[in-house]
Amino acid sequence: MFTEHAKVMKALAAAGEIVGRKKLQKMIYIAKKLQFPFYEKFDFHFYGPYSEELTCRVEELCNLGFLHEVKEKKGGYFQYRYTLTEAGEQFLNHYDIKMPHLQECMQDMNEQNSRFLELVSTVLYFEHLTKEEVKEKVFLLKSKQRYTEEEIEQAYMYIEKLRAKVKNEVHA
């Protein structure tokens, strides 16, 4: 019970602090694609893979006082900053969740900007297609983001780098 909540908290604890809901969404999606056992359902939305379940889960964790959310005004819109609270750390002590290499991956992703993570998650969403088809999808569906061929190549390399970190050691 509450295991899925605990996993999200574990990911946040591993990252330290995550700035931006979009970034949080993409990081969990990428982690899920790396075979970390997150079960939130993601659909393709305007800005790439998005999970309403994850949004609700994070809201619940904030309401329970396990996550600290700071709303900041940034230009014409708001941005949210998330950290684990002390109560959250105590809650997490009730669970023995083993996700080897999660910390390395979350920290690495946290160092990337959300625009790049949006591209990485989009590439992963279409990874069943050939590289050429993926590029076509990115250019078509993300035309406003103006991603370049070079950025797409970097996204592929980054995915390889993360997969190398995880190797075959992720367990459910």
């Binding site: 509450f2 809901r21 979009k22 969404q25 305007f46 949004t55 619940e60 014409g76 708001f78």
Partner: peptide, 20 residues
């Protein structure tokens, strides 16, 4: 059982780039 276990939502403006 938690509210996040349900496949329905209500309106949230969200943050830029999160959801339209």
């Amino acid at each position: 059982d938690s509210s996040s276990d349900l496949p329905y939502d209500f309106y949230r403006p969200g943050e830029e780039g999160e959801r339209l």
